[in-house]
Design a protein around this nucleic acid. Structure first.
Lengths: 335, 335
DNA sequence: TTGTAAGCGTTATCAG
DNA sequence: CTGATAACGCTTACAA
């Protein structure tokens, strides 16, 4: 059996309260006794039982994280940020993988609550009504990642998707592209797909380029659908000079479709992405893309949680981090 | 305040033990009372406090996982397996990211123990003496991933690296390659790099191909070093007809070096990898590689832990899962 | 079948 | 400054 506070107290000839005091520095203890207790603790190799501690303090030092898929670079890197900052503040991460399924997500949300986690970082592809209902009455801090949560009172950390898409589209236009396809994601209001779309159309309009609906495709963050969309464009003889995919995976899918059909990137068609996952610089040609500060997104998310736990209320609901356009080799200049 | 077992007992007009019995099915309870209690539980929305439960049961329902880096496909996918099976058995995952640093790993190992986790899945790039000392005296189940643990008494789940490398080398030879470079990893005894090396040399010897040390490079799982190794080969005019990299990332690094220097894969040089990470089929040309059952590795690892927790001793120490050679487009036949 | 009461290892309150 | 002692919410002998 592990050694408990009692063992220490007995061996040091003091009461357990005294031991508790020295391990917590909570109340003054005479130096002599403190030393004695410390020595016994050392000898016995005593470590306080965090479970017992949690029970009385009603704190678990646990933060729950729900993600749709761990083996995804964006999510993994965000998790790195969460984990590192969490550990700095002595919080552990309880990991839940929802596979993006509503039912799982709801289940985990209540599971985490029942596990007494002190906060939840919740990442989902689609923020549904059911989520919102739950989130609105939950009494522990929750923060979301890259969702538009302005209608519910949940903080969210993200980048300026509108601005980023606007910037990227302008970049393309400045390179002489006029026929620019958009493979986008997140049609829902909670997602930033709509903001990206607005950024794209705004840039186009400002340059008097007409919006061609046949060049706007819906994707799902993954390669396959983007691949198929491009194959379709090829079949329809409706290839643009540039493709803007709002996720790097989709951009890769687009490039693969092009390459597999004998086109060259960027010589025949330019392709740009969004996120700057590791892969973006590993693929050939290296992908021009929008860099999201992924690690920082995770770090900021958990910082918000910790602040809320400490009772420091933040009134902001959207935490917007800076992005950056990373110019690499997948876009060709037409001018 | 959350509702407790007492509240339920009071409202249902029974003792707390009775409530405990119905929620645990531990002892017979008359049907009438059971219904009554269940109803109250429902009404009050009661969920047992797992912290209190852990305290008395001395079980946390927590399994600690230490990995060197979350944003890595292999690790993420393994984690998917761990998480999914863990949840099936009602275990939660406490995630620790060590960045592969010895000190962090040691810290987490004891942290997890003090957190009363019931088992630990420990993944590291290098299994050092310090780890072994710790692991030898720890009294909770630990399992490792892809390490050769035959000298300590810790189970490890892996594939047959010797066989896989042998198979791949033979594949290359059968395609007519004779000048085959090896970019390998894990020189230590705990790692399977040595086994892979043996598989490679065995195949070569069996075909009377002399081993050319100038074609054997040490890598570190990452792209950069492999990239540099290949650049060096190019500079030295010592390019083989095929490169076997023992990680897909390194294979990509090798291909990038080739492509960036004007060579074509596989037309000029063939490249094959190891692991079959997602990227392997996303890159162009698609990478021929050895597929490790990554998800299953995680799943098996946690199953072993759970079995050990239940006291079902396993005497095996190496759990070898099947691998598969996946033939794609990065290798050309010379015959 | 049900209830009483003794823990589990801490922290916190209140006397001394 | 120090020590009893009552919680925290739950499980589990032991009694009834």
């Amino acid at each position: 059996m592990a050694v408990t506070i009692k063992d220490v107290a007995r061996k040091a000839n003091v009461s357990i309260s005294t031991v508790s005091r020295v391990i917590n520095d909570s109340k003054p203890v005479s130096d002599e006794i403190r030393q004695r207790v410390l020595k016994v603790i050392e000898e016995l190799g005593y470590t306080p039982n965090p479970v017992a501690r949690s029970l009385v303090m009603k704190k678990s030092q646990l933060i729950g994280v729900i993600v749709p898929n761990i083996s995804n670079y964006f999510i993994g890197e965000m998790l790195n940020g969460v984990e590192e900052i969490g550990k700095m503040y002595n919080y552990d991460i309880l990991l839940c993988n929802s596979y993006g399924e509503l039912e799982q997500e709801l289940k985990y949300l209540s599971l985490l609550k029942s596990k007494q986690v002190e906060g939840i970082i919740f990442m989902t592809w689609n923020l549904k009504k059911e989520h919102k209902e739950f989130l609105e009455k939950i009494d522990i801090p929750v923060v979301m990642i890259n969702r538009n949560t302005s209608d519910i009172n949940i903080p969210s950390v993200c980048i300026d998707h509108f601005g980023a898409a606007y910037e990227m589209t302008n970049y393309l236009i400045n390179k002489g592209h006029k026929k620019i396809a958009l493979i986008r994601t997140g049609i829902g209001n909670d997602a930033f797909g709509v903001d990206q779309y607005k950024g794209y159309t705004k840039a186009l309009k400002e340059h008097n380029i007409e919006i061609d609906e046949s060049l706007i495709k819906n994707g799902d963050f993954k390669l396959e659908k983007a691949y198929d969309s491009v194959v379709e464009m090829i079949k329809n003889n409706n290839l643009p000079t540039a493709i803007f995919a709002t996720s790097d995976y989709m951009a890769i899918g687009a490039m693969n479709a092009l390459i597999d059909n004998g086109f060259k990137v960027p010589d025949d068609v330019s392709v740009v992405g969004f996120n700057d996952i590791k892969l973006a610089s590993m693929y050939r040609p290296k992908l021009t893309t929008i860099k999201q500060p992924i690690y920082d997104i995770g770090a900021v998310a958990i910082r918000i949680i910790i602040k809320k736990i400490k009772g420091e209320e933040e009134d902001k609901t959207l935490f917007v981090l800076p992005h950056e356009l990373i110019e690499r080799d997948s876009c060709r200049s037409l001018v």
